[in-house]
Simulated assay, not measured.
Amino acid sequence: MVIAHIPGKIKFKLIILFIILLVNSKSQATYFSEELEEVSFSPFAFNNIPTSLLNISGLPLSSVQVLNETYRIRTQKQIADLCQRIDYTYKKLDWSKSPCFSLPLTFNYVSENGKPLVYWEFIDNSTGYDESQRHNVTLILGGVHPDELTPVHLAFQLAEALHKNPNLYKNSRVIIAPLVNPDGFFSNPPKRTNANGVDLNRNFPTATWNKYAYQIWSSSKDRDKRKFPGYFPNSEQGTRFQADLITRFQPNKVISIHAPLAFLDLDYEVPKLLTIGPQTEQQRKARNLAELLSRSAGNYKIKDFGIYPGSLGNYAGNERVIPTITLELSSSNPKLVKKFWRDFSPGIFKALKYEFKKPQFDDIQASALWNP
């Protein structure tokens, strides 16, 4: 006897299967939308994805792969758009073509105008992980005040040189963020502040910011808009970007390139109660680093310029005990970029190999014990 199929049961099973697939798909989509919430675009905007990306050898891609590919395409386009704008500005400044397109840049933050805050980590993998690399991590920042044009060019040239010659960072790690403030750089004319009118070198969340930063600025006679610290600390994307690089990569030294004051400024201090007596080994090594850069540039002037509430030197050099050198080029004149490359690149390349072997806080703790 043949038992006939019952269409109603088949339809019911199909409906149940469809509901299960729908629920799984929705839960997966919710998970990935939460994971990608911070990247500032909708992960479900697949309208422009080529059909070829939806399958490999006839096998459909998972939602994870599609989302990852969408994110990769979107970020590459954002970086390409940024590089195109940089090339246009380079051309206006008669700097020929920028190295931006040739660099393997990435980003985790965007500016107030949506421009990628790009950086790249150069790390020597030729001999595997070496203990010296932990003691030799350098962060280089350019374009914090992009009306100071020459530092932007120098930072990009440094990144290009490292990309072409890995021997320059052998047994070390270097992180370069060549254009911390793209919104200011793309202004016409370029300006010191970001799109919100905030000076990124006055906005770091230092211990004295709440008490002094805005109050000092607002009570000053001129209320210089170029140096506006913001209404509260850490309010700007460019500030958070720099602080994140410091937190994530734990540099042993920071070099921030500015202009046009023509000196080197070292910020590396500890609380006054701990500096009674002779200098610690780390303090001497930090001073030696500044002197190395000075000698390499023809005995370039070293000057203690002081610190501001909310400045990088205060945030990194004093509060986090990371030797922080501000390299002030002597001019913002875009015609002098070749001269500055000749003068300063040899010293910076030497500085990349300069190691701080002792853990940063050992000397401070010892000093605290002997100077209670």
Score class of each variant (00 low, 15 high):
I123H: 07
A243Q: 10
R295V: 09
C83W: 02
P251I: 01
V2K: 14
L293K: 03
N201E: 04
Y268E: 02
T239P: 06
R284I: 15
N108L: 11
P309S: 13
H5L: 12
L329H: 04
S235W: 01
S332W: 03
P334C: 05
T138L: 12
Q283C: 01
L105P: 03
A213N: 02
I257H: 04
A177H: 10
I20E: 12
L264Q: 06
P205N: 13
L141P: 09
G230H: 03
L179C: 08
C83M: 11
F228Y: 15
E148Q: 15
T89I: 09
N371W: 04
L336Q: 11
K26R: 11
E148N: 14
N125C: 07
P278M: 06
V174D: 06
L93S: 10
D124A: 12
F228I: 02
K91P: 00
D343M: 10
G277V: 12
H153D: 03
H163Y: 14
I3E: 10
I10S: 10
L273N: 05
K13R: 13
P271A: 08
A243K: 13
I73S: 07
I49N: 01
A80I: 06
Q157D: 09
L352F: 14
V152L: 02
F12Y: 07
W120M: 03
I140K: 01
E35F: 08
S367P: 00
F249Y: 13
R74H: 15
L327Q: 07
K164Y: 04
H258Y: 06
F263R: 15
T247A: 15
L67M: 13
L292K: 04
F356I: 12
V2H: 12
N196T: 02
P182V: 04
L327V: 03
F41D: 06
K338N: 02
R72K: 14
T247Q: 14
E328G: 08
Y90R: 03
S126E: 09
D183N: 03
F101L: 10
A290K: 08
I325P: 09
N48A: 14
G197M: 05
N318W: 08
Y88G: 13
S219F: 02
A45Q: 12
D183Q: 06
A243L: 08
F107C: 09
G238V: 02
L200M: 12
F46Q: 08
D362A: 02
F349M: 08
W370H: 14
T70Q: 06
R134K: 14
S330W: 05
T89Y: 00
V23W: 08
Q84F: 01
I19T: 13
P309I: 00
L312S: 12
E34D: 13
S332R: 07
Q282N: 14
D130H: 05
T324C: 10
Q76S: 14
P372D: 15
D244R: 00
Y268F: 15
H153A: 03
E37K: 12
P50E: 05
I176Y: 04
S187C: 06
L139T: 05
D362G: 01
T30G: 09
Q242N: 07
P146Q: 05
P178E: 09
F263A: 08
K272S: 11
G114E: 05
V137N: 08
V66P: 00
I123S: 09
Q76K: 13
I15Y: 06
T206P: 08
F107G: 06
V180P: 10
L266C: 09
P334I: 03
D124R: 04
T193F: 03
I255T: 00
I86S: 04
F241C: 02
L17A: 15
L274F: 13
T239E: 10
A286T: 01
Y214G: 05
